[in-house]
Nucleic acid binder design. Structure first.
Length: 878
RNA sequence: GGGCGAAUAGCUCAGGGGGAGAGCACUUGCCUUACAAGCAAGGGGUCGCUGGUUCAAAUCCAGCUUCGCCCACCA
C-alpha cells in the first residue's frame, strides 16, 4: 500500500495478493503442539460437484471467524478442510455427460464408469475449494481430505466390519424408500414430505359367503391389487362379527382375511383399512404381526408387475386410472372425497418415492442412539442455540434403523462377498480368495455402495487419521465446535455423534453451532426452480469483495435465525469497508513524521483518554461476544465503534491536534495508530483482507495481522471519567450544531456562543474549548459561571446542565424561539411528572433495587434542573 | 397431529424486567483537504391482540391471531 491511495477501496487488487501471501508463508498450516490448547473445527465437507452458494459462504465465514480468532488467541488451531464424494449427485453429473454421448453407465461397465467419475472429480472437483479460498477460508490445506480418499475409505471399511461383527449392521428384506428415477433406495430422511391435496376413494370389498361388503378408504387405489387383508380395530363393535371372516378383493377376485389390529384408527373413514404389505409401511408391519403374505404389484421401475394381473406393465398412475375405472364399472366404488396427505418425494430429484420391499443393508439404531441421547442430555455436547437440543433429541429418540445400501456405483462399496455355491455372506476388508465355509472360489461382492452420509458420519475422526492412533487424532479429537445449518442436524450431526461415541468412546465435538438458512430478498428459500431468486456469492465477491460478503453474512442475523439476503445491506457493508479504507488513508497522510516509540503515550488529551478507554471496553466485549457465539453482535459493535466513535468523533478531534505540530501532534499520532491498529486486529476475523492490507501499511511489528496476538484489554486505559467528560463535550457540540441547523446558519459561518455552567463543567469545557470551537464552528466562545449575565437576543438550549446561548445576529426570531422553548418545556413537564409519580410510589421505593431508585432520582433532578432553566429562559423572553 | 421460530420505525432486522435501537429509505443543509460509497442536523414506533405475574412488562407467563419452518406410519 503506497502513500498515494485511491479514494475508494478496491478489494480485487488486495484480496488475492494476501491470500497467496498467507499460503506461501504457511500460516494456515498447523503442527501438533502438545503444550498448547488445541482448537479444531472440521469443515462440513461440501459436495465435490458443488459450487459455492450463499449457505456455504455463511457456514464457512462463521467457521473462519472462529478459527482466526482462536488462532490469534494463541491456541493450537486447526481447520481441517475437505470434500464429500456425494454419491448420487456426482454419479448423476457424470451420467448426464455420458448421456450426451448417447451412453449409459451400463455401456461402460462399473470399472470404466468409476474411472470416468474419478477423472471428472480431478478435473472439476476443485471448484468449491477454489471458492473457499477466495472467501478467505484459513483452512490447513495440507491436510485436505476427501470422503473417498484412501484413509477415509479404510475408516469406512473398518467401521462397517466392526458394526457388522457386533450385529449392528444387518441385511434383510424390508420395506424401503425407493426412488424410481435415481433407481436407488433412500434413507427415511432423504424422503421429503409435502402436504398436498389428494383424493380419498372409498371401495367396497364384498364379503365371502354372504351378502354385504366391507368398505375401505384409500389414497392409492392401484395398490389394492396387492391387498392381502382388511384390518379393523379389535374393539370396534361394528366389525366384531367380521373378524376372522374373508372378503373378496375386487378386480383380483382373491379372498383376503379380515383381521383385527389396534393400529387401525376407528375414527378414520369407515374404520376398516385395506392392507397392502408390499407398498405401505404400516401395512408392512401389520402384515408381519399377522403373518400375511406380501404381494408386490409395483416394481422398481414404478410400473405394475405381473402380480397386478391385467394391469401388468402399466405405469403406477396409469394403473390408478384403470383400477378406478374398473372399480366404478363393477360397482365397487362407493365414493370419493378430497383429502390432505403428505406425499413422499426424493430429496434429490423430487420423484414420488415408492415404498418397496427389498433386500438391503441396515444399521441397527437403538443401541447406537442410546449413548448419543445421553451425551447430549448430560450436556457434554451443547447445541447453540439451545433450542436445537430438543430437535435433536426428539429425532434420536424416535429413530428407526438406517438403510445404508444404495444402488449406485460411485461410493464406498459394501465390503461383503457372497459365495455363489453355498450363499455364505462374508464381510471382509479385502476380497477373500475362497469361501471360508465351502472353500469355493466363486465369490461375488455385493454390488451396492454405502449411503454417502455413512462416510460423512466418520469425518471428525477419519480425517484426523483414524483408525490409526495418530498424534493429530490424539491432540485434536474431540474437536471444539461443529458449525452447520440447521437442516443438516439429522443427516450429519446426529450420525457423527453416535459414530464418534461408538468408535472413539468420546463425543466428536463439544459444541454444535447451528445457523439459519439464507433466504432471498422476499424471505423465500432460494430455489433452483426460481433461478431469479438465486444470488451467486461469486458475483458478490467479484463485485464487492470477500470481506464485504463475509461481514454482510456475519451481521445478517441472530444465531439460528434465517436471514434474507439483500443487496442494500451488501452495499452498506461495502461503504463500511470504504470508510475504514479512508480512515487508513487519513492516518497515513499524517504519519510522514511518525516515530513508533513503543512507549505508552503521555500527557493524553481528553479525546485520547476517551478513545483509549472505549477501545478497552470494545476489546473486552468483542472477545466475550465471540466466546458466546454472538458473532453478529461483535461485528455490529466493531462497526459502531469504528464509524461513530473512532471516525466521527476521535479523528475529527485529532485533526486540530495534528495541525498544532510538536508534542501534541506526536502524541495524537501515537494514539491514532495504536487504536486503529488494534481495531484492525479485532476486525481481522471478519474482514481478513482489508485488515491485512491496512495493518501492513501502518507501522507494525510482525509478519501478518493474522498472527498478531488477540489483544487483552489494558486496565490502565479504562477511564470512566474521560468517557463522561467526553459525553458532555459531545452533547454540547451536538446541541450547538442542532441550533445552527434549525436556524439555518450558513455552515461555513463561524458563530459566537456563550455557555453558562457550574464549576465542574466549566473546567471541562474550558480545558477543551478548542474542540468545541472546531467541532461546533465557533468563532468566539465565552464560558461563564451559572447565574451570570446571558445574552437576550439569542437562541438557547440546555444540555447536560449547560446553558447554551447563540446570539445569532439577524437570525433570532424571538417568537419562534418562544414557541420552541414552550414545546420543549411541555415535554420536560411530562417527563418530570412521570418520574415524580414513580418516586412517590412507596412500593417502588421499597421493592425496587436501590441502584434503580438512585438512578431515577438522579434523572428527576436532571429533568427538574433543565425544566427550571428552560422555564427561566422563557420567562426572560416574555 | 406434534414441535419450533417470527410478529419492534416506510423496508430489512438487532435488542430484551427499570431511559425504544441500527442500517436502508425519507426531510433539511453541506463537494468542510480521509471518505458524496461522505459529513451534519432532523422526522418517524400504544414493540401483533387479550389477559396474568411484578413496585415496574416491548421484554417473563398463559391464551389468541397471522406468517414461516421442521417432524409424523390416520389409510
Amino acid at each position: 500500500m503506497s502513500r498515494q491511495l485511491p479514494k475508494t477501496y478496491n478489494p480485487q487488487e488486495v484480496e488475492e495478493k494476501w491470500y497467496q501471501f498467507w499460503l506461501e508463508k504457511g500460516f494456515f498450516q498447523v503442527e501438533v503442539e502438545k503444550e498448547k490448547k488445541p482448537y479444531c473445527i472440521v469443515i462440513p465437507p461440501p459436495n465435490v460437484t458443488g459450487k459455492l452458494h450463499l449457505g456455504h459462504a455463511l457456514n464457512n465465514t462463521l467457521q473462519d471467524i472462529l478459527i482466526r480468532y482462536h488462532r490469534m488467541k494463541g491456541e493450537n488451531t486447526l481447520w481441517l478442510p475437505g470434500t464429500d464424494h456425494a454419491g448420487i449427485a456426482t454419479q448423476a453429473r457424470v451420467e448426464e455427460e455420458l448421456a450426451k454421448e448417447g451412453l449409459t453407465r451400463y455401456d461402460l461397465g462399473r470399472e470404466k464408469f468409476l474411472a470416468r467419475v474419478w477423472k471428472w472429480k480431478e478435473e472439476y472437483g476443485g471448484t468449491i475449494i477454489k471458492q473457499l479460498k477466495q472467501l478467505g477460508a484459513s483452512c490447513d490445506w495440507s491436510k485436505e481430505r476427501f470422503t473417498m480418499d484412501e484413509g477415509c475409505s479404510r475408516a469406512v471399511k473398518e467401521v462397517f466390519l466392526r458394526l457388522y461383527e457386533k450385529g449392528l449392521i444387518y441385511r434383510g428384506s424390508y420395506l424401503v424408500n425407493w426412488c424410481p428415477k435415481c433407481a436407488t433406495t433412500l434413507s427415511d430422511i432423504e424422503v421429503e414430505h409435502e402436504e398436498s391435496e389428494g383424493r380419498l376413494w372409498h371401495i367396497r370389498y364384498p364379503l365371502v359367503g354372504g351378502d354385504g361388503y366391507i368398505q375401505v378408504a384409500t389414497t392409492r387405489p392401484e395398490t389394492m391389487l396387492g391387498d392381502t387383508a382388511v384390518a379393523v380395530h379389535p374393539e370396534d363393535g361394528r366389525y366384531r362379527g367380521l373378524v376372522g371372516k374373508k372378503a373378496i378383493l375386487p378386480l383380483m377376485n382373491r379372498e383376503i382375511p379380515i383381521v383385527a389390529d389396534p393400529m387401525v384408527d376407528r375414527e378414520f373413514g369407515t374404520g376398516a383399512v385395506k392392507i397392502t404389505p408390499a407398498h405401505d409401511l404400516n401395512d408392512f408391519e401389520l402384515a408381519r404381526r399377522h403373518n400375511l403374505p406380501q404381494v408386490t404389484v409395483i416394481g422398481f421401475d414404478a410400473r405394475m408387475t405381473a402380480e397386478a394381473g391385467k394391469y401388468a406393465g402399466l405405469d403406477r398412475y396409469e394403473a390408478r386410472k384403470r383400477v378406478l375405472h374398473d372399480l366404478a364399472e363393477g360397482g365397487f366404488l362407493a365414493g370419493e372425497e378430497s383429502h390432505l396427505y403428505a406425499l413422499g418425494t426424493c430429496y434429490r430429484c423430487d420423484m414420488v418415492v415408492e415404498p418397496l420391499i427389498s433386500k438391503q443393508w441396515f444399521v441397527r439404531m437403538k443401541p447406537l442412539a442410546e449413548p448419543a441421547i445421553r451425551v447430549v442430555k448430560e450436556g457434554k455436547i451443547r447445541f447453540v442455540p439451545e433450542r436445537f437440543t430438543k430437535v435433536y433429541l426428539n429425532w434420536m429418540e424416535n429413530i428407526r434403523d438406517w438403510c445404508i445400501s444404495r444402488q449406485l456405483w460411485w461410493g464406498h462399496r459394501i465390503p461383503v462377498w457372497y459365495c455363489r455355491d453355498c450363499q455364505k455372506e462374508i464381510a471382509a476388508g479385502e476380497e477373500p480368495t475362497a469361501c471360508p465355509a465351502c472353500g469355493s472360489g466363486h465369490l461375488e461382492q455385493d454390488p451396492d455402495v454405502l449411503d454417502t452420509w455413512f462416510s460423512s458420519a466418520l469425518w471428525p475422526f477419519s480425517t484426523l487419521g483414524w483408525p490409526e492412533q495418530t498424534p493429530l487424532l490424539e491432540h485434536f479429537y474431540p474437536t471444539s465446535v461443529l458449525v452447520t445449518a440447521r437442516d443438516i442436524i439429522f443427516f450429519w450431526v446426529a450420525r457423527m455423534i453416535f459414530m464418534g461415541l461408538e468408535f472413539m468412546q468420546e463425543r466428536p465435538f463439544a459444541e454444535v453451532l447451528i445457523h439459519g438458512l439464507i433466504l432471498d430478498k422476499d424471505g423465500k428459500k432460494m430455489s433452483k426452480s426460481r433461478p431469479e431468486t438465486i444470488v451467486d456469492p461469486q458475483d458478490v465477491i467479484d463485485e464487492y469483495g470477500a470481506d464485504t460478503l463475509r461481514f454482510t453474512l456475519a451481521t445478517g442475523t441472530a444465531l439460528g435465525q434465517d436471514q434474507r439476503f439483500q443487496l442494500e445491506r451488501v452495499e452498506g457493508v461495502r461503504n463500511f469497508a470504504n470508510k475504514i479504507w479512508n480512515a487508513a488513508r487519513f492516518l497515513l497522510m499524517n504519519l510522514e513524521d511518525y516515530v513508533e516509540t513503543g512507549e505508552k503515550p503521555e500527557n493524553l488529551s481528553l479525546p485520547d483518554r476517551y478513545i483509549l478507554s472505549r477501545l478497552q471496553a470494545v476489546t473486552a466485549e468483542t472477545g466475550e461476544m465471540i466466546d458466546r457465539y454472538d458473532l453478529g453482535g461483535a461485528a455490529n459493535l466493531l462497526y459502531d465503534f469504528i464509524w461513530s466513535e473512532y471516525c466521527d468523533w476521535y479523528i475529527e478531534m485529532a485533526k486540530p491536534m495534528l495541525k498544532t505540530g510538536g508534542e501534541e501532534r506526536r502524541r495524537t499520532q501515537q494514539v491514532l495508530v495504536k487504536v486503529f491498529r488494534q481495531i484492525m486486529v479485532l476486525l481481522h476475523p471478519y474482514m481478513p483482507f482489508i485488515t491485512e492490507e491496512i495493518w501492513q501499511a501502518l507501522p507494525h511489528a510482525g509478519e501478518s495481522v493474522m498472527l498478531a496476538p488477540w489483544p487483552e484489554p489494558e486496565a490502565g486505559y479504562r477511564d470512566a471519567g474521560a468517557e463522561s467528560e467526553m459525553q458532555l463535550l459531545m452533547d454540547v457540540v451536538r446541541a450547538i450544531r442542532n441550533i445552527r441547523a434549525e436556524t439555518r446558519v450558513d455552515p461555513g459561518r463561524k458563530v459566537e456562543a456563550v455557555l453558562l455552567a457550574g464549576s465542574v463543567q466549566r473546567r471541562i469545557l474550558e480545558e477543551n474549548r478548542l474542540y468545541l470551537e472546531v467541532l461546533a464552528g465557533l468563532g468566539r466562545l465565552e464560558i461563564r459561571p451559572e447565574g451570570t449575565a446571558k445574552p437576550d437576543r439569542a437562541v438557547s438550549a440546555v444540555e447536560s446542565g449547560v446553558e447554551i446561548y447563540l446570539p445569532l445576529a439577524g437570525l433570532v426570531d424571538l417568537a419562534v424561539e418562544r414557541e420552541r422553548l414552550q414545546k420543549e418545556l411541555a415535554e420536560l413537564e411530562t417527563e418530570k411528572n412521570r418520574l415524580a409519580k414513580k418516586l412517590e410510589n412507596p412500593q417502588f421505593l421499597a421493592k425496587a433495587p436501590a441502584a434503580v431508585v438512585e438512578k431515577e432520582k438522579k434523572k428527576l433532578a436532571e429533568v427538574e434542573s433543565k425544566y427550571e432553566k428552560v422555564s427561566a429562559r422563557l420567562a426572560a423572553l416574555s
